[in-house]
Design a protein around this nucleic acid. Sequence first.
DNA 1: TTGTAGGCGTTATCAA
DNA 2: TTGATAACGCCTACAA
Lengths: 325, 325
Amino acid sequence: MTTLKDIAEHANVSACTVSRYLNQNIVVKKETEERIQSAIKELGYVPNVVAKALKRKETTNVAVILPKINSLYYSEITSGISQTLGKHHYNLFIYEVDNLNLNENEILQLMRENMVAGIIIVGLFSDLSFKENIPSFLECGIPVVYANRCIPYAGFPLVYPDLTEAGKIGADYLFSKGKNRMALIHKKLPNDVLELFLDGIRQASKYEQKPLILEINDYMDLSKDCVPILLQNNINSAFVLNELGAVNLTKALVQADVQIAEDIAVLSLGNSLLSQISTPELTCVDLQNQELGIKSAEIILNEIQKETFEPVTVLEPFIVERKSS
Amino acid sequence: MTTLKDIAEHANVSACTVSRYLNQNIVVKKETEERIQSAIKELGYVPNVVAKALKRKETTNVAVILPKINSLYYSEITSGISQTLGKHHYNLFIYEVDNLNLNENEILQLMRENMVAGIIIVGLFSDLSFKENIPSFLECGIPVVYANRCIPYAGFPLVYPDLTEAGKIGADYLFSKGKNRMALIHKKLPNDVLELFLDGIRQASKYEQKPLILEINDYMDLSKDCVPILLQNNINSAFVLNELGAVNLTKALVQADVQIAEDIAVLSLGNSLLSQISTPELTCVDLQNQELGIKSAEIILNEIQKETFEPVTVLEPFIVERKSS
DNA sequence: TTGTAGGCGTTATCAA
DNA sequence: TTGATAACGCCTACAA
């Protein structure tokens, strides 16, 4: 393994000259530079990032902590993060909490052991895991971004989509299509998060409409447990706050001979491949997952490098019109 | 930051005793052990993995190199890898080649700089990137697993699904449903890979059937460019070697009033959420993506720790029956 | 513009 | 069973 010292000897300079030349673009005599360069090529020198990290007490590794990677939702966010980190020559660690079998303190220990430069915690917007642990992360001097959770600012940077705006533009859109009896369908969202959407819907309807709120779960048969309720209540639009739920509900409606869009419009929250390949293709509110990742990464890099950060970054959702409404 | 030395002083032993106690379970006097333990708790010691890596000249970080993470295909594989690495206390670096803007040599350099313990290269089975570079990885002493590519053994471990078997069981299944005029539809698969499937199909049909081979791409309108061909040729089953392609073809067929399963059976290659939410739900050949990840990780860990490896690991695909055939 | 020397936190070697 | 010492490869005062 070729080291800096080898290069130095081969180029007849000191190790520190090589180091400075390599790291800080500090001015070096032209002739020296050439000698160093050719030594590097000749000996095939590759800097040792680990040694550098030990000395500088900081790595260029950023950890992303998420429930699981194998979902379009999380992998889109991750992709945004990966893009941005890559551009800045940072490496990306992935920690899947669901697979790791570690509690939050053990994960903190893992982060410290590995001297990660920063941590991006990503969850569902209904999920608050790690929130209580962030102060201990910060105490250790590890920058954190808490992504995708809509909570009040509490001392660490937040990045999340504007769920009230999502509710508003969703409702606005459905009303504009003449749909005035809306069902708001969600999958185990806690009340405070649901309230964000409802706020938006109230704004859009000027408080004149109250959507029918329906909670679904993985074990329900939507055909039996959901569609009849919609029909009995003369619902003509369903705003589904869960993309897979929207796809499945659409299926159930089609099965029940409901005309999607004409009879009941379906609007899904989230714009992944799922909405696109559903039959009919789903109109949706795009929450900008990839952008969420990009922003999260930008913020953590700022924290790492400049030690300052935007406290709260809110992403604006938008409608993508397709066939289901 | 508390170091090993601090613990040593606090426990009145030498640093090396602490180190040995922590790492190798080497016998230590009960009393000493207790002193060390309490010092660790009292001072809140967290080992420094970076320093350890420098000294030992090896990290516990494994790099996964893949085209992009935001697809169900790659994220399932990644999830399998992540699971296994996590169990063995290894960390997972993700490098998205499509986002990285680096050529293969630069990526090699990145791996070396970071002293990764091993590399898992994941691609489509039709893609051979990095193949030529693997010898240089190995020269540097970095273990590599080349996952998902069906090539002859060439000195480094391979993990891939048995595509011939996939062709065989797919064809067997379709024949068993009385479908004797098959179209084999693929998306820019090179001939050698296509040939693997065809081999399997020949085995199943005892060389009596020749499927109609059709190549699709992202810019085609399947309704116009594909469905008519199937109808003109009296095709009654479509084996689609691309999951999204299968979903889209199914849509196009439904649009053309073709009865899926009765008129034309659709069989997709790959069993992600896409097949499940398609209408009708797609019968498919499951290639065991997650298992592919698990196996790849197991093999790289063996390479790293025991310096031996299974040369070739082949995964057996199986049919998952749903509604489309 | 360049060099010297010491240390980042850990482990390996050798000796006790 | 334990300790002293010297590295691992790099960076950074400080000095020249």
